[in-house]
Each structure stands twice: as C-alpha cells, then as structure tokens.
C-alpha cells in the first residue's frame, strides 16, 4: 500500500506560543481515501489539516505530501499547494471578482492557462456544482450554499489530487447543507482523496472509509466508520458521540 501513500504525518507537533495545539500526530492517507475528522472545538483538527497545505507551519515532526516534504522551502510549498485544494468554513470567495473570475483566477495566474481555456474549465466546474447560471454574479449576490459550491469549484479548477475541507457546512443555514454535501459525495464517488473536518455524521457514514477523533491536540481514535460509530474504544469518543448524536 505504501506506493499509494499521498500524505504522511509523522510525530507532528505545533505550538501557538505556549499552547500545544498538535501533539505527536501520526497520520497516513492513501490515494482515494476519504477521512472524516471530528472532535470538540479547540481539539486541533482544523490546525492539522491547515498544516498539510502549510497555511500553518508545524514546529516538530515531518509532513510529506506526494513525496515532497513541507519545510520553509517556498518551492515545495508552492508545489504542494498546486495539488492540494482547500475549502473553508467561511467560503473565502473573493468578493471583488465575479464567480467566473473567482474560479478562473488560479488557472490563469498559477497554471498560466489562456483566459478562454480557464473560463471553459471554470464553466465546466460550475456545471458540476450545478450553478452555471450564476457565473456572472458576484459572491455577495449568492446564498451561502451557492457560495460554498463556488468555493469547491474554485479549488477543483486547479485539478488537485487531494481536497481538504475545513468545516465546510458549519457556517450554512440547515436547508443549504444538503446541496453542499451532495457535491462532496459526488466528488468522493469520483475517487478524490478527501480529508474532511465536519460534524455531519450522516455524511461521514455515507462517505468515510476512516474516522478520526481528535481531542486536546491528539488523535484519540482512528477507525472505520462501522467500528467508530458502533463500537468506539475510548470513553472520550463515546462521550463525544453521545453528545453530538443525541442532541
């Protein structure tokens, strides 16, 4: 299996000043795997996936993505970011650009693609997330669910092998969550490697092939969804699951 390994975290540690956010994180992600990460707020789950594309720097341990180690070397960081897409809780669309420009920006500037070609690609991804009719609008004119789907299309337009999702539905009104999850499920079915921080346990059961539970900067439990939901080993996981499943 090791040839299929696309992400490898080994003894990763990170501090914010005195606060120890990540403690000896070990994680291996294989090509095509869908990993759902959950845990209470402040457990370090967002920080962990943000370390994978170097939005945050780790201080100890190694992170290897596609055989490239993340260091301060900007070349490696650029290389990894080109292959790793990310979707944020707050969408982070560029408000001064139209939907089409939001999506075609990176292909044009990072991949040096001709404008026409980049816009064709942008349109094809907008069709994939089912909102091609919004292409000329600005982000501020769209609903939250539509904005998040544009954000997914924007990441996909760079044709990444790995997608990181940082609580993609937490800022959405309940009736819009499904349209975003549907796009993510479709993406999973197409074989994308995905790391998803979320509390949508229905989504996790449908899509995940690994569940990770984090607490206080550690990976407390890693298991298949079946084991994780039906037979969790640690008491901390049990407590967490009982809280989020029975509320």
């Amino acid at each position: 299996m090791s040839t299929d390994q696309v992400i490898h975290l080994e003894k990763v540690n990170k501090w914010y000043d005195d606060f120890h956010v990540l403690k000896d994180i070990d994680l291996i992600v294989n090509k095509g795997q869908k990993i759902v990460i959950c845990g209470p707020s402040g457990s370090g789950k967002s920080t962990m996936i943000r370390c994978i594309n170097r939005l945050e720097a780790h201080q100890k341990g190694t992170i290897v993505v596609h055989g490239t180690e993340l260091t301060n070397d900007l070349k490696n960081i650029d290389l990894i970011r080109k292959n790793v897409g990310m979707v944020f809780q707050q969408f982070n669309l560029f408000p001064h650009l139209s939907v089409l420009d939001n999506i075609s920006l990176a292909p044009i500037w990072v991949k040096k693609m001709p404008k026409n070609e980049a816009e064709d690609i942008a349109m094809s991804y907008l069709e994939k997330v089912k909102i091609p009719e919004q292409a000329q609008k600005f982000p501020g004119q769209l609903s939250g669910g539509q904005q998040q789907r544009v954000a997914i299309a924007r990441s996909l337009a760079m044709n990444p092998d790995i997608m990181l999702f940082d609580e993609p539905t937490s800022a959405l009104d309940p009736e819009m969550i499904k349209e975003v999850l549907d796009v993510m499920i479709q993406l999973a079915e197409e074989g994308m490697t995905m790391l998803v921080v979320t509390h949508e346990m229905g989504f996790a059961k449908t899509v995940a092939d690994q569940m990770i539970f984090m607490d206080e900067g550690r990976i407390v439990e890693q298991a298949t969804p079946d084991e994780f939901f039906n037979n969790p080993k640690s008491d901390r996981t049990k407590l967490f699951l009982s809280q989020i499943l029975n509320h």
Binding site: N53, L55, D78, R81, K82, V84, G85, M86, F88, Q90, N92, L93, F94, L105, A106, W109, V110, A151, R154, S155, M158
Partner: peptide
C-alpha cells in the same frame, strides 16, 4: 481568509497582493 484562500490555490505573495 482572503489571503489563505489565495495561498491555498497556489498564488504567490505578489499575485495574492496584486489580484486579491
């Protein structure tokens, strides 16, 4: 988040500064 989104797409510092 604006800068982070641009960085995660692979834009360089100057591209992020100029375009975003």
């Amino acid at each position: 988040g604006q800068v982070e989104a641009a960085q995660s797409l692979g834009l360089s510092y100057w591209q992020t500064t100029r375009k975003i």
